[in-house]
Computed example of a mutant assay.
Amino acid sequence: RAMLTALLRGARERGAAVSALYPTVAAPYRACGWEAAGVLRTVDLATAALPRHRPASHLTVRAGTPADLPAVAGLYERVTRHRNGMLTRRGELYDFFAADRGLPGDGLTLVERDGDLVGYATWQRGRGYGADSVLTVDEALAVTAEAARELVGVLGSWASVAPTLRLCPLDGDAVSPHLPLESARDHERDLWMHRPVDVARAVSARGWPAHARGAVDFGLTDPLADWNSGTWRLAVADGAAELTRVDGEAELRLDVRGFALLYAGAAPARSVAQAGLLHHSPGVDPAALDLLASGGPAQLLDYF
């Protein structure tokens, strides 16, 4: 508790708004305000079950080189910028990985249209040709259905040497509709947890749906980060939101773990209330705090 309190304070001082982590054991983090908000799911598919299509004449498939990595990073942003929770691929960590000027994994497959990148897959071949041989796809992303279909066809072509395809599907992306996910077998499930570092900063810094509009007052209790505790008014309009402090007691009272669930879109307010993380006066509808959950669930595609 002392360590996490110090880490939260230091994170706030350097400008952080939110925290996410993959717990080995959830209980110590839950006791300090983190709550389970999602799962990074890795699945195995029979490579031979992937659909094969006649290659599209207007698309080009080629092997990528390190010189293509800036374009790959740009396409990743095109896919993920409108989503919630996805990590940026900029900053010191990724600069460090890029410094060796090599490819991520064993190979990079690109799909282009008129010279523009519209899809890519990074993969690791593994070893052997037997029944236990696995092609691990670190990432397969596309911005058009045609590019996604082409990528899936290329991955399916490995069936004779890698009977199993292993990947992390991204819910609702262009590639998933072309995968036989009904036959997927879970290989690994990594729970991730979330909590706010600074609630006011977390609300103002994130994007909000342009159609969402409204205001709601709520109390917040955060024993480890006292700067988050108090009574707040959430106001959302025109794709932005703000938290301001207000006087008095609110009829809706959130535990910081309840705030984490709502902010990440992991649960609606009534479910948070049933879990004992949102308390309200008799006759008050807790669903007013669904405003905090506007925008759908957050998802992670990176393990750390």
Rank of each mutant, 00 (worst) to 15 (best):
L103Y: 05
L135E: 04
A140R: 01
R90F: 03
A140L: 09
R125L: 15
S133L: 04
G105K: 03
G126E: 08
G85R: 03
V118A: 09
Y120L: 02
R62V: 09
A140E: 10
T60C: 10
D138V: 10
F97Q: 13
V111E: 04
E92R: 15
G64A: 05
R125I: 09
M86K: 03
L87M: 13
R83N: 02
E139N: 10
Q124C: 13
E92M: 11
R101H: 15
D68Y: 02
L69Y: 01
F97M: 13
T109W: 12
R78D: 11
V118Y: 00
P66F: 10
A71N: 05
L141T: 01
L69K: 00
G74I: 00
R83Y: 00
P66Q: 07
L93V: 14
L93Y: 15
E92L: 15
Y76C: 08
G119W: 08
L117V: 06
H58A: 14
A140T: 11
A71Q: 12
S133T: 14
T65C: 03
R78W: 00
E77D: 14
Y76E: 11
L69F: 02
R78V: 09
L59N: 07
S57A: 15
G105Y: 04
W123D: 01
A131N: 11
L108C: 09
L87A: 13
D95G: 09
T60M: 11
L69N: 00
D114C: 06
G91I: 05
L103S: 06
D68I: 01
A140F: 03
R81Y: 05
G119C: 09
G85V: 04
G126V: 06
D100W: 07
A142E: 08
L59S: 08
V79G: 03
A131V: 13
Y94D: 10
T88W: 09
D114N: 12
A73P: 00
R62S: 12
D116V: 12
V111W: 07
D95R: 14
E77P: 00
A63M: 12
L75F: 04
E112G: 07
V143T: 15
A73C: 05
T136A: 14
V118G: 02
L93M: 07
Y129Q: 13
E92I: 10
A73V: 09
R125A: 15
V134S: 06
D132E: 15
Q124K: 10
Y76K: 01
P104R: 13
F97Y: 15
L93Q: 11
L75Y: 04
V118T: 14
L108R: 03
V111Y: 08
N84D: 02
L135M: 06
F97H: 14
T88Q: 12
A99G: 11
A73N: 07
R54M: 08
P70W: 08
L117H: 03
L141K: 01
P104W: 05
L59P: 08
Y120M: 06
A140I: 13
A131R: 15
D138T: 12
A56N: 07
D132H: 13
R62H: 06
G105L: 06
A63C: 10
V143N: 06
G85K: 06
Y129A: 14
G105P: 02
G130P: 04
